[in-house]
Amino acid sequence: MNEYNFAYLDEQTKRMIRRAILKGLAIPGYQVPFASREMPMPYGWGTGGVQVSAATLTPDDTFKVIDQGADDTTNAVSIRKFFEKTAGVETTEETYRATVIQTRHRIPEAKLRDDQILVYQVPIPEPLRFLEPRETETRKMHSLEEYGLIHVKLYEDISQHGAIATSYAYPVKVSDRYVMDPSPIPKFDNPKLEMDAIQLFGAGREQRIYAVPPHTKVVSLDFEDYPFEASKANHACDLCGAEDSYLDEVIMDDAGNRMFVCSDTDYCRSRRAAGHVGRLAEENAA
């Protein structure tokens, strides 16, 4: 094939990572420490997700990478090319064809199946970190299930903004036990965390792996009088007309004209291919 070992990492490292993944799956939401390796890309570019993908991929897999829903950003393209080169796996932009999907900050709109694996890139795995800087203390809080602090953050949100303003990386409780940071996905995606596919989370710089097995209960934390809401922009996609997908706002010109488009590029493309038309579709085509 080439001079790289399959999927870049050596076999011992992949075994070590797989053990961490299995432990993570066995204890849903629990952050498993692992010996994160130097990868040929900077921290913050998905080194955690890449290592998890490397340990997960087999030669028969079909690999897809999205960055905030898009297949065509620098980050997505370079990671896709990385595995094309080092693992020789087939890659795709179509969600339904992929068996392993690495993602940064989104869950695909299409419902994932139980033969798919979703790998998240995680910048800060510790949901309590912003209020409690001591790792020894946050680990103790997790082990003793002392989660009052996470509600302090939500309290602060409401008191400062009148509503829970946390709109991404919205904390969840997994399987009635561990509070988990779902990575910076929009809270619109939180309800989708209960899915048929395996979800793996890799934080390279922080050296943590955690997981949500299929069909696991995932509850977004809230207050009785300020219940969780999976919000999105109150628009339809201007290209494909979808009303149920998470939208990016695009500024069109200096006059303040804007358009809203699906952040999930594959979802939008496949809808348009199926004949759905949005408000600005013709102009765009023209």
Binding site: L131, E146, G148, Y155, S159
Partner: peptide
């Protein structure tokens, strides 16, 4: 780094109070 209200509320939330 937490407001006065949040500081006072923390112990309440720690014992399970969930009504803002």
């Amino acid at each position: 780094s937490v407001s006065a209200g949040g500081n006072i509320g923390e112990r309440l939330m720690a014992v399970g109070d969930r009504h803002y």
